[in-house]
Design a protein around this nucleic acid. Sequence first.
DNA 1: GCCAACGTTGGC
DNA 2: GCCAACGTTGGC
Length: 144
Amino acid sequence: MAKIDKKTGVNYWLVKSDPETYSWEMLLHDKYTEWDGVRNYQARNNLKLMKKGDMVLFYHSQLEKAIMGVAKISNEYFHDPTANEGDWVAVEIKPLKTFKQQVSLEDIKKNNLLKAIGLLKQPRLSVMPITKAEFDEILRLSKS
DNA sequence: GCCAACGTTGGC
DNA sequence: GCCAACGTTGGC
């Protein structure tokens, strides 16, 4: 898989998915997917800020509670085709790298550098920004 | 505009 | 399966 580009100007994000609904494995199989169905204003606003080439950590909620890999934004926001009414948007993401070692919620909780990460501060938000430092630390933990 | 009721999410 | 957190809805 492609090398991860850590050049500046790129933004870093984390998205959550219940793997029973849509998993990292399904994304690998699909090659790319529309990240749609978001119905929370804060999450939507974050989708609108995503730029092509931004890095996205893909987190499995519920049973697995671990970050599975890195995806990237392959298309910026557009109207969410699954929304019948309202101003909702989707983006397109592509898998970039599967982690050698998944980074679990437990790992994140006990890491001092990740104390302030959105995943811990706002456990219910499904699309959130993270810092480059947080991204780099998670990448380090993943041994990827 | 406030706030109680309700629904959803997600960790445990 | 339970419950806390939190967002949304609707009555007033």
